[in-house]
Amino acid sequence: MESKQIHIPDNAEYRELKLFIEANSSTPGPLIQVLHRAQKIFGYLPMEVQHFVARELGVPHSQVYGVVTFYNFFRTEPIGDHIVNICLGTACHVKGASEILKALEKELGIRVGGTTKDRFYTLSTARCFGACGLAPVMMVDDEVYGRLNPQKTIQILKDLRTAQTVK
């Protein structure tokens, strides 16, 4: 049975997560809050991390996996340095969000959910951000960009990439 044990490296990330779990294990229903922290630390929630969380909290892995896959916010795949989120809510829809998405898929050469080869951008969609007055909108990481059209959107992403490479 020894071989079935998943090896958890003893590093700073896991230690941070363990401390958070210990501090929160007495509060009822901590799983979602723990996963929030875990994703903040690791960027995504691979199987190893899910197993770790399950073991530390003393719940079955199936329960952790169920929660991770239920909510939009949690990811099980690694992502690029920057996440491009296109809003497909109703207000953005009437203002042409799907055109923008199509243009971006073509420009970046990836589908929704995919990551560019250089791991720079991950393309994703979201329900409403609550920034509907600026529709159509996208979020690149935590920054909101509004009143977009396909050309403007492509330009913004190009500019961001240039700004990053210069840095």
Partner: peptide
């Protein structure tokens, strides 16, 4: 948990 599209 405001999630109704078009509401903020």
């Amino acid at each position: 948990d405001e999630g109704e599209p078009g509401t903020f």
